[in-house]
Write a protein that binds this DNA or RNA. Structure first.
Length: 222
DNA sequence: GATTTGATTCTCT
DNA sequence: GAGAATCAAATCC
């Protein structure tokens, strides 16, 4: 029998998290409905033997095949987006702009290819390690402020694509809060242009670590 | 096979 | 605020 909730004690903060089985069940829902439930979630990385824990403050929801033009899986299943078609709770890590990694949590029923992009968080444990990995950060709130900064602070990269984030043995794990965040805002997604731009599928709490909103813009190329 | 695009970040002005 | 860095995947022809 699993406990109703377990606690993670990290000093001046305390998060009541739900059991992995309950979390996996919750993650089976539609991406825009599940996304707010990930606010306040706790992601722990043990990559390289160093422990870094962040509390999620900002997420974006992405739909599946034929549902969401802003999603990698909109057209069809490919080798790249294959992890999105896996079971909910798995990680989908992709490389973008030639230099950045972004971490998603697969949601929705298996095969529906929904995902939640983890856009920002605040570092609760392992700040020194995070500073070492993110020397250009200007403040503690800046350590994981932005999807690529967050993966840098956690040392998450392609090696973690497809791992089960709800398995305790995984190098990167996620724990959902037993009590969801009640105060949050939604807005259009960052960097999504075209037909999917209108969706209010970006959710964030009132926290300094939330990344500044930037609408999609055309890029000049040299 | 060639070209375009992108769920970004950093630096310089 | 604008531009550069940098590359895999998707799309175009």
């Amino acid at each position: 029998m699993l406990p109703m909730a377990t606690s993670l004690d990290g000093g001046d903060w305390l998060v009541q998290v739900m059991p992995a089985r309950a979390a996996r069940s919750l993650l089976c829902g539609d991406p825009p409905r599940v996304a707010p439930a990930l606010l306040g979630a706790v992601i722990t990385s043990r990559v390289g033997g160093a422990k870094v824990t962040v509390r999620v403050t900002e997420v974006e929801a992405y739909g599946g095949v034929g549902v969401d033009p802003g999603s990698h899986a909109f057209r069809r299943r490919t080798a790249r987006n294959a992890p999105m078609f896996g079971p909910p709770g798995n990680a989908y890590v992709y490389f973008t702009y030639g230099m950045h990694w972004c971490l998603n949590v697969v949601v929705g029923d298996r095969g529906t290819a929904g995902a939640i992009l983890i856009r920002a968080g605040c570092v609760l444990v392992g700040q020194q390690v995070a500073w070492h990995r993110r020397p250009t950060a200007r403040s503690a709130h800046d350590l994981a402020r932005g999807p690529a900064r967050l993966t840098a602070a956690l040392a998450v990269d392609g090696a973690h694509n497809g791992v089960d984030l709800l398995a305790p043995a995984s190098p990167v794990t996620i724990a959902l809060p037993a009590t969801g965040v009640h105060q949050f805002a939604s807005s259009p997604r960052t960097g999504v242009s075209g037909p999917g731009a209108w969706t209010m599928w970006r959710f964030h709490t009132d926290d300094p670590s939330v990344s500044p909103y930037r609408p999609a813009r055309a890029r000049a190329r040299g």
